[in-house]
Amino acid sequence: MKKVLDAIYNWLTIKVVIDERPEDQAAAETETLFRTILTEDLGVSEIQVTKESDFYYITYVKDGVQQNTRFPIELIEVMLNQINESPERYQNFPE
């Protein structure tokens, strides 16, 4: 179970970056990698994310069972905040 939660955390952390910076090719590739790990390697499906008050709430299906977890917003948005605070360090380079 810990592997699934780690993968969801990693995926969601980069997903919030790509949601804010859709032109960021590196973030898009990383999001695809983590989504593939979740869906193909770990068998997670039907992932839904909501953001309410101080948490991201995630609902997903694993082994036919719907499960829920949550992460504090500040934990998930740490990478996005670093990028926004020092954008010169996270330039987007064309392919």
Score class of each variant (00 low, 15 high):
residue 25 Q to H: 06
residue 44 V to N: 06
residue 72 P to K: 04
residue 42 L to V: 11
residue 71 F to L: 07
residue 56 Y to R: 02
residue 28 A to H: 01
residue 70 R to I: 00
residue 74 E to S: 13
residue 73 I to G: 08
residue 75 L to T: 10
residue 11 W to I: 06
residue 17 V to C: 11
residue 5 L to E: 08
residue 15 K to M: 02
residue 91 Q to V: 02
residue 84 N to D: 15
residue 7 A to D: 05
residue 17 V to G: 09
residue 5 L to Q: 09
residue 88 E to K: 06
residue 11 W to H: 12
residue 58 I to M: 12
residue 12 L to V: 05
residue 78 V to K: 12
residue 86 S to E: 15
residue 33 L to N: 13
residue 29 E to S: 08
residue 32 T to F: 12
residue 76 I to Y: 06
residue 87 P to Y: 04
residue 52 E to K: 04
residue 14 I to T: 01
residue 8 I to V: 15
residue 65 V to K: 15
residue 64 G to T: 03
residue 12 L to Q: 09
residue 21 R to C: 07
residue 13 T to E: 09
residue 57 Y to I: 06
residue 84 N to P: 04
residue 40 E to Q: 05
residue 52 E to N: 04
residue 6 D to V: 12
residue 87 P to S: 03
residue 14 I to A: 05
residue 67 Q to C: 07
residue 8 I to L: 15
residue 34 F to Y: 15
residue 73 I to R: 13
residue 77 E to V: 12
residue 11 W to M: 02
residue 10 N to F: 04
residue 68 N to R: 10
residue 9 Y to T: 01
residue 95 E to Y: 10
residue 37 I to Q: 15
residue 32 T to L: 11
residue 88 E to L: 04
residue 2 K to C: 10
residue 75 L to F: 06
residue 3 K to T: 10
residue 27 A to H: 00
residue 14 I to Q: 07
residue 49 V to R: 15
residue 78 V to A: 10
residue 26 A to R: 12
residue 90 Y to Q: 02
residue 33 L to V: 00
residue 79 M to D: 13
residue 24 D to W: 03
residue 53 S to A: 10
residue 33 L to D: 14
residue 50 T to A: 11
residue 11 W to P: 01
residue 29 E to A: 07
residue 70 R to T: 01
residue 93 F to R: 15
residue 32 T to P: 08
residue 88 E to T: 00
residue 41 D to E: 15
residue 76 I to S: 08
residue 81 N to F: 02
residue 27 A to K: 05
residue 95 E to T: 06
residue 53 S to C: 02
residue 36 T to P: 04
residue 39 T to V: 11
residue 2 K to D: 13
residue 29 E to N: 13
residue 47 I to Y: 02
residue 50 T to E: 05
residue 81 N to C: 04
residue 84 N to W: 10
residue 9 Y to W: 08
residue 57 Y to C: 05
residue 28 A to E: 08
residue 3 K to G: 04
residue 10 N to A: 10
residue 20 E to R: 15
residue 28 A to W: 00
residue 36 T to D: 13
residue 6 D to L: 08
residue 81 N to E: 07
residue 9 Y to L: 11
residue 13 T to D: 03
residue 92 N to Q: 01
residue 40 E to F: 00
residue 40 E to M: 01
residue 37 I to L: 15
residue 64 G to A: 05
residue 63 D to T: 07
residue 45 S to F: 00
residue 81 N to A: 06
residue 2 K to L: 14
residue 83 I to D: 02
residue 22 P to I: 02
residue 20 E to W: 08
residue 29 E to Y: 07
residue 38 L to M: 01
residue 67 Q to D: 08
residue 88 E to D: 09
residue 90 Y to T: 00
residue 81 N to G: 10
residue 11 W to Y: 15
residue 94 P to R: 14
residue 46 E to V: 00
residue 49 V to C: 12
residue 4 V to T: 04
residue 41 D to W: 08
residue 48 Q to S: 12
residue 8 I to N: 14
residue 56 Y to F: 15
residue 25 Q to F: 10
residue 68 N to E: 14
residue 81 N to K: 15
residue 14 I to L: 04
residue 51 K to T: 05
